[in-house]
Design a binder for these strands. Structure first.
Lengths: 230, 230
DNA sequence: CGGCCCGTTGAGTTGTGTCAAATGTTGTGG
DNA sequence: CCACAACATTTGACACAACTCAACGGGCCG
């Protein structure tokens, strides 16, 4: 039973591995559509998300795990535009230039559906079309919020905003279990890993947060973080 | 005829005042919908865009002029998320927190339509629903590109990218006529006006651009700018 | 002509990046 | 279960790109 115990421990420390769509959301038209015309694919950690086969546009829905979407400059500078958790939908284009712009952060199950299939369904179901648009508009709102962070917030404010965002999105109370590395956080916040680390140390120094393990963070003083959030 | 001459000169130097939707695009489902259920409103320079009357969500289409959308922090730091030129559609929510997040940059004519009216039309017209979504997805793509700029590009690269973007979006060949102030550019690029100014001087020094008047810029060496664009 | 606004230039400061080393964590094979 | 390797994170010292504050210049309008 030793092996069993270890497995349980690992899961306890990695809640995002088991949290799935069904446990978090009631069904919605897009999730339903994915179940109809999509298929579930399992991905390793750090694998590029793609549908094998001919180049075409796809929709992806995170079932379990976590995903980063990003853009890179020629010299390798990377900007992560969003993290995607279970339930989130990613729309990827079969782009000519940058072939991959989505990767798993943790072992993940992703439902994959051809864009054309979803679009065909949406033509016949206004509430599906509406749901797709609603989600895209939400993503746009988040992007606008993130541009404010990237363009106008300092390092400490960025990290505080990030922690609040992740806490809001995760179901666990009090603490956040971060599925991504410091490098991912840095590339999301437009900083370096060193600056992220220093900012965390700073926040810990003012008792705004507690750290138990690199990726488990407890928000001890939310209002202090909110103040930094702007 | 002196007054007439001055007016003509002014127009010649401010092409965005006369460039309208009809001269740039063939009709599309959303523009058609605006003509059906929207009304045109004239705004002064630097006015907050809003539909008067009860709080509700609206769509706006720029007919002539130019608009900035933005977010601000409590202490006044501002991030412009996009500039909108004739033909572009802005979706604004009757937000509880920040009441105004769109302002005209130049005297503008804006078509205003209630969100519910457009949505109702879209329920009956799949190609309209599709067009709305297509535009939102395009905005999201632009936002992702802009996050890369804000998070990972240096000042000179940001300004170069900005000039290329504006040149691509304006119909005039060779040169760009910028409708916005240096402060607007700075708040779009996540810089200060001084840094924008210095970057322009730098680009001029390397013969990448020419300046004739503060807001008229000629791209003399596009490939040099492209290289900075990444 | 004079005042005002906007943009540019200059000098000095500072927050974040860079480079390097130390420490902690995770995974693997014996 | 331990020992070691490989990797991730933190900490430190220093450099530099962009910011701040200030002065100057030019165009526009009354």
């Amino acid at each position: 039973m030793q092996a069993q115990e270890i497995a349980v421990n690992n899961l306890a420390r990695r809640p995002w591995l088991t949290r799935t769509v069904s446990t978090r959301e009631t069904s919605d038209p897009l999730t339903d559509a994915f179940k109809e015309v999509g298929r579930a694919v399992r991905f390793e950690r750090n694998s590029e998300i793609q549908a094998d086969g001919e180049p075409a546009d796809y929709f992806y829905q995170v079932v379990s795990g976590a995903v980063r979407t990003y853009k890179v400059l020629d010299d390798g500078r990377r900007q992560i535009s969003a993290f995607h958790l279970p339930g989130d939908v990613i729309e990827l284009e079969a782009s000519r230039n940058h072939r991959f712009s989505a990767e798993t952060i943790a072992p993940s199950v992703i439902r994959v559906a051809k864009r054309s299939a979803i679009v065909a369904l949406a033509e016949r179901r206004p509430e599906l079309a509406n749901e797709i648009w609603r989600r895209t508009a939400n993503d746009l709102q988040s992007a606008q919020e993130h541009m404010l962070l990237l363009g106008r917030k300092n390092a400490e404010e960025r990290v505080a905003s990030f922690l609040l965002e992740m806490a809001d999105r995760s179901s666990t109370e009090g603490g956040v279990e971060l599925p991504m590395s410091r490098q991912d956080i840095a590339d999301y916040l437009g900083l370096t890993i060193e600056t992220v680390s220093r900012s965390l140390t700073l926040l810990e120094g003012t008792s705004a947060i507690d750290r138990s393990g690199n990726r488990r963070i407890r928000l001890r003083n939310r209002s202090a973080l909110q103040r930094l959030n702007g």
